[in-house]
Amino acid sequence: MLAYRFDVFASIVFQCIVMFATSFFWKALYSNSDTVMGVGVQEMLTYTIISALMSIFLTTKVEDRVIESVRQGSVAMDMMKPINLFGIYFAEDLGYLTSLLFQNAIPIIVIGSLFITIPRPASWYHFLAFLGSFLMSFFINWFLSAIFAMWAFSILNMNPLVQAKRHIIRLLSGSIVPIWFFPSWLAKILNCLPFVYIYQLPLDLYIGKGTPASMLPRLAIQFAWLMILAAAFAILQKRVLRKVMVQGG
């Protein structure tokens, strides 16, 4: 129990450090200008807190779970249950998120509001649009993770790849630095990849960057990515389950 408690505590501290460091960075950057790329410091700080909050809800265990259970062979026990294998992992992730909501999300939002700024959405409409878009982000992120996890059924040492994927998502999704600060050629490329639809788009909606007219096509692309990944997930899942390797006798 002590080990768990330490884990929880350490993860909150770590998330706070990232949140504070990023907010100091923005404050320094904004010290001699009111707006950069049409965004004020207040919005940028809100962006930082909400991004930290989102990262909590976008933590998935599915890759680690599959890697561990394939390596130890306990995937056999999961497959003995009369339910979809990935359904088990999804349910476990949801359960884990519920615990994170109380353990991490609430502390982060309280600390952020007290010491950085109160993260107000641009308006109620923006908030609702954010919620809708974030729901899609959540599934895009989960399907991506699950598809990654499927590799673990055939590649036994997946950990490095999973770590790399996590960092790539954090960097290229606009979760730390919004992609409107990136060179425009890079931003164009990133707009074609699914990552920005995990963080950047919901965050833009929250702080009210961009007009409704410019947001609708992006939401459509987000929805398209969701569908593509869901389909890929469904197809790969079938194939992968057929060649599951159960280790050990």
Partner: peptide, 21 residues
């Protein structure tokens, strides 16, 4: 069980002595 795993395991019990469920 390859085609309808869920249907089969619904009516199956398994103990692998070296693992636990």
């Amino acid at each position: 069980p390859q085609k309808e795993r869920i249907k089969v395991v619904q009516d199956l019990g398994v103990v692998f002595g070296q693992r636990t469920q």
